[in-house]
Design a protein around this nucleic acid. Structure first.
Lengths: 115, 115
DNA sequence: CTGAATCCTTGAGGATACTG
DNA sequence: CAGTATCCTCAAGGATTCAG
């Protein structure tokens, strides 16, 4: 019987702990849809994220190498973010998940109501 | 500029709130890997899930119509779970995500260490 | 403008005990 | 065996303030 243990660095759990948070995927597809964006641009696109969580999320994505951050020595400061190659390689799979959701959400909602 | 509002039932957020929890995807791929399984079978496969969270997760998946539950009127009771058609249709996309994780986790870990 | 620092709330999830 | 019922913990995330 196939199982998925907590030990042995299960990749399923790794990917979930990274992408399963509230904002990461949203930031990724926003960056993919718009290309290079400033901090405030992303904030405008995801209106209900707090300034703190946007900063935290971007930092994690940058640490993992999915997003690149470029700060310009200007006043007022300007910082631009864009997907790295590895970040872009994740996009199709997220899109696939979104596509699945779009196709099946109606049925799921109906199932949910019927229960 | 493309954005993703909280209003208007954003499918991205819907799918994330459903599958982004700690156990749902794990239960789904476990059921997919083993076919029909009893409650205790699933528990053996995912050793560190609590009885409570397995029950909760299965109920949500059942409510959404991703998993079907069959209870047999026996003593001791026997309950079997298996993926529905719509549940199975989600599997390839989860597998794709897992595959991506497998391919890129090494690089990501290296990026993380370098920071 | 782009954050960092601080404090605080909330709810997902765990531990345990009990039951048909 | 397959759960339910309670209680409890902890960390993700929000609100606010301050700073370069």
């Amino acid at each position: 019987m196939k199982n998925f243990h907590p030990t042995g660095n299960c990749p399923v759990r790794d990917v979930l702990s990274r992408l399963g948070d509230k904002w990461s995927m949203l930031v990724l597809i926003t960056l993919n849809a718009n290309g290079t964006m400033r901090f405030s641009d992303i904030h405008k696109c995801i209106e209900d994220i707090s300034q703190r969580m946007l900063a935290v999320t971007l930092r994690i994505l940058e640490t993992d190498g999915l997003v690149e951050r470029k700060a310009y020595a200007e006043v007022p400061p300007r910082v631009e973010y864009h997907l790295t190659e590895i970040g872009q390689s994740l996009i199709p799979h997220i899109e696939a998940l979104v596509g699945w959701a779009l196709e099946n959400m109606q049925v799921i909602l109906k199932n949910r109501d019927a229960s």
